[in-house]
Write a protein that binds this DNA or RNA. Structure first.
Length: 813
DNA sequence: GCGGACTGCTTACCT
DNA sequence: ACAGGTAAGCAGTCCGCG
């Protein structure tokens, strides 16, 4: 069968081209369609020119104003014509910014990533009876509250229930000679030779190309039988291109910005004709002519993916960190960046390992990442190359556009939404923010045994759904809706029409809560299918979690501030009411944040009563989320530690967990975590208290006596979040340290994490440039203190008395 | 001229 | 380029101190 995986405009044939993955031949095929033309909509007919193909009056639904309107559908002879016209004609145009290939996908109803077959020059969707059966079943089970939502459930259900193809793919990595330890090879110049290229495929092929280096002993290569050596770099690169054309999918880690452009530029330098170079360098990505290029660096950098799909298991995006977090293994360690100094065997091993990790990142957990990409491609109606690189607001936007087109609705212009629907009515607590957000309840400090946490499942998506929120329904024009307000804000909500956002996000939410969450845990389902359900569940989670936020982001094309603030306002209303109800029932509320409530030792009876009340009052699933053996709260919000009944420790927000904290303190923190799992009842606290004091004292003394093993253990790790020139207002410590690195000739850029130690005289130094005796021990002791008071307070440990007191005494003895 | 109080900047976290 | 809320540490400024 054929699966559409990519779409683009083909300049040679002057029409749209789909790339289809054939899962029988395991190759890519192309499908050209010259019956579809670029177009946009206009309020007025334009003066006819040779670049306009036709102009035709069409009827559209305008959901923003709730009326039917007539617009001119203007078809052009080339996609670029639309841009040219938009520069001259700046008013009265609609949908002129939507990419041509996206229009094709939406209007021709191309289901990306779904099965098709070619018949008489056309593509026909191939129905899968078993999947259809499951779709039927899920609709019956969910039993949508609105009849008109059934088609949405059907199409979403199909996208998630149809099986995904096996994708043949190869991971690729190159190594380039490097003359300067402090710098990475320059891509623009591409002035140094490529030394090694490796391909590793998921069908078992391993290909290694290596360049013969004049300075290196050739005798040791006899046992490298699978390696093909080249004396000509040009030949090696030509062979590399040949290989790249053989695979339908090429996976890299940072291939967009390094491997592929370097190969392309190097090829040009070596005189390979441009038509033989299968690499297309675009502004924001690097593509392949005959394959789909997935750059995992881009994929793993997508914030929403990082946080929701991978639960922040990795915090910086580089191959070593991501692989260690997800696969449990990292890169091969090298002494420095001097690739040229490695023996052939080491160089090849190193390069192969990178390819191996890159491939494994797409295959682990039964192809989790590859399947995530396919599901997201399906849901977003975007080509794989785009969905795997672009942030989540692009996916949601694309989903919304598709839905507008399917209903013959004109897509409103951002500025029109703002004019018609108005601005925010609430005031944020934080300076510079646009509107008020969630409620955080001040915690009751102390050790609380038997604490249970209840929370609303997908609170914000549920609010979007239940309260029919969207740009078309908030502050609508109908007189009878004006009184339909909720809670504290003046906005009213439409009673006549349903909002697309509410339908789409609401349906996704229902699918997740009532179907995929359950299926992913169902023990009667075979393993592979269960894993697929888990992928579907995670994909929906990622989308739902961001769905509210986009309406408060002014760059989002359906930006609608009243919708965003109405969501949080209703959220505040719901959680506040629930806390009040809990107290009425006689439950002790210890803490709460946004959609969760911590309750101290509730009776099963009262807890169930609260759960039932919340569910029926708000029609949102309110469930028992966690049962803690105990939680340890301080007065600080968003900061706590809890031990679950399973013995697992849950740490939130504490300094000991943050990634910038030096290792010497983190290790202490982890040891204390283990001790805390050994507390089962209040009497245990006493025993563990002494052990914890002992631990901290040890580190305290180690610092006082300057007896650390390794200076690296004292390094803070702080990320540079913007270009160095942008730090105009202040010079933070990590920037100061970074500048010292630059002065020594190192390259430092936004996104890098700086490792620095605090030195005497309120100074800092990069750890690589600092010496042991420069360390400002007082600063570290202060940090040790501040890190541990967060949990010591509730334990009844006093720094002065218990840590310093004993240590000072001992020092006298 | 110095130090404490204060504000604002920056990063990393929580939901 | 999904949002707002919170903690922490530091940089820089203001103000009072005769």
């Amino acid at each position: 069968m054929l699966y559409p995986v990519s779409a683009d405009y083909d300049n040679e044939f002057n029409c749209v081209v789909l790339k289809l993955y054939n899962d029988e031949t395991e190759r890519l095929e192309k499908f050209y369609d010259d019956t579809f033309f670029p177009y946009f909509l206009s309020e007025n007919k334009l003066s006819q020119t040779s670049s306009i193909r036709s102009q035709e009056l069409v009827e559209k639904r305008d959901a923003l104003h709730d009326e039917q309107i007539h617009l001119w559908k203007i078809k052009t002879k080339h996609p670029l014509v639309i841009r040219a016209i938009s520069r001259v004609q700046t008013t009265g145009l609609y949908e002129n910014y939507i990419k041509f290939f996206q229009c094709y996908i939406y209007d021709m109803n191309v289901k990306m990533g779904m099965p098709y077959e070619r018949k008489e020059g056309r593509l026909n969707f191939v129905t899968n009876d078993k999947a259809e059966e499951r779709v039927h079943e899920l609709i019956k089970l969910i039993n949508p509250s609105h009849q008109e939502d059934i088609p949405i459930f059907e199409s979403l259900g199909r996208l998630l229930e149809y099986p995904a193809p096996f994708i043949r793919r190869a991971a690729m990595d190159i190594e380039v000679l490097n003359l300067d330890v402090k710098k990475v090879p320059n891509v623009e110049a591409a002035n140094l030779p490529v030394l090694c290229v490796t391909f590793l495929s998921n069908s078992g092929e391993k290909i290694v190309f290596a360049l013969v280096q004049a300075n290196k002993e050739f005798s040791c290569i006899e046992n490298l039988t699978q390696v093909e050596f080249f004396t000509s770099e040009r030949e090696m690169i030509e062979k590399t291109f040949e290989k790249m054309n053989e695979y339908p999918f090429i996976i890299t880690f940072n291939g967009d910005d390094f491997d592929l452009p370097y190969l392309a530029r190097r090829a040009l330098r070596l005189g390979i004709p441009i038509c033989d170079i299968p690499i297309i360098m675009q502004k924001r990505m690097t593509l392949l002519k005959n394959a789909i290029h997935i750059d995992l660096y881009r994929f793993f950098s997508i914030r929403a993916m990082m946080i929701y799909a991978f639960a922040s298991k990795y915090k910086t995006v580089d191959l070593d960190t991501v692989a260690k977090a997800l696969l449990g293994e990292g890169k091969i360690e090298k002494k420095d960046n001097m690739v040229g100094n490695l023996s052939y065997a080491d160089l090849i091993e190193y390069c192969l390992k990178d390819s191996e990790l890159t491939l494994k990142l797409t295959t682990f957990n039964n192809n989790l990442v590859m399947n995530l990409i396919i599901v997201l491609e399906r849901l977003s109606h975007m080509p794989i190359e785009n969905v795997s690189r672009k942030s989540i607001s692009n996916w949601i936007r694309s989903m919304m556009y598709d839905e507008h087109r399917k209903r013959n609705m004109v897509i409103p212009r951002s500025e029109d939404i703002l004019t018609v629907k108005g601005q925010t009515a609430s005031v944020a607590l934080i300076k510079g923010k646009k509107y008020k957000g969630a409620v955080v309840v001040k915690p009751k400090a102390g050790f609380h045994f038997k604490t249970k946490v209840g929370d609303f499942a997908s609170l914000y998506p549920s609010i979007l759904k239940n309260y029919n929120l969207g740009y078309s329904t908030i502050n609508c024009k109908h007189p009878e809706c004006k009184t339909n307000t909720v809670g504290e804000l003046p906005h009213h909500i439409c009673k006549r029409n349903r909002a697309i956002e509410s339908q789409l996000i609401g349906s996704l939410r229902d699918l997740r809560v009532f179907w995929y969450k359950k299926k992913a845990k169902d023990k009667t389902i075979e393993k592979e299918r269960k894993e697929w359900y888990s992928v579907a569940e995670q994909s929906i989670k990622v989308i739902c979690n961001a769905a509210y936020g986009v309406f408060g982001n002014k760059e989002f094309s359906l930006y609608c501030p009243p919708v965003a603030e109405e969501v949080t306002a209703i959220g505040r209303f719901i959680i506040t009411e629930t806390i009040q109800k809990a107290q009425e029932i006689g439950l002790e509320v210890l803490y709460g944040d946004t959609d969760s409530i911590f309750i101290h030792d509730p009776s099963a009876d009262k807890m169930n009563k609260l759960i039932e009340w919340a569910k029926t009052t708000f029609d949102i699933e309110f469930e028992l989320d966690k049962s803690y053996r105990y939680v340890c709260l301080s007065e600080r919000k968003k900061n706590y530690l809890g031990v679950l009944e399973s013995g697992e420790v849950d740490v939130k927000g504490l300094t000991g967990k943050k990634k910038h904290t030096p290792m010497i303190i983190k290790r202490n923190f982890d040891a204390i975590k283990t001790l805390l799992t050994e507390i089962h009842k209040p009497e245990d606290i006493e025993i563990k208290r002494t052990e914890i004091i002992k631990l901290i004292k040890k580190t305290y003394r180690q610092l006082r006596e300057r007896a650390w093993d390794n200076l690296d253990d004292l390094a803070f790790h702080v990320t540079i979040t913007k270009d160095l020139e942008e730090y105009k207002k202040t010079e933070p410590q990590h920037i100061k340290a970074a500048k010292r690195l630059i002065a020594k000739g190192y390259e430092v850029a936004a996104g890098d994490t700086i490792d620095f130690v605090k030195t005497r005289g309120k100074d800092v130094k990069p750890v690589s440039l600092a010496k042991n005796d420069e360390v400002d021990v007082e600063k570290y002791i202060e940090f040790l203190h501040n890190t541990f008071v967060q949990i010591l307070e509730p334990l009844g440990i006093e720094w002065e008395r218990d840590i310093l007191g004993l240590c000072k005494l001992e020092r006298f003895m």
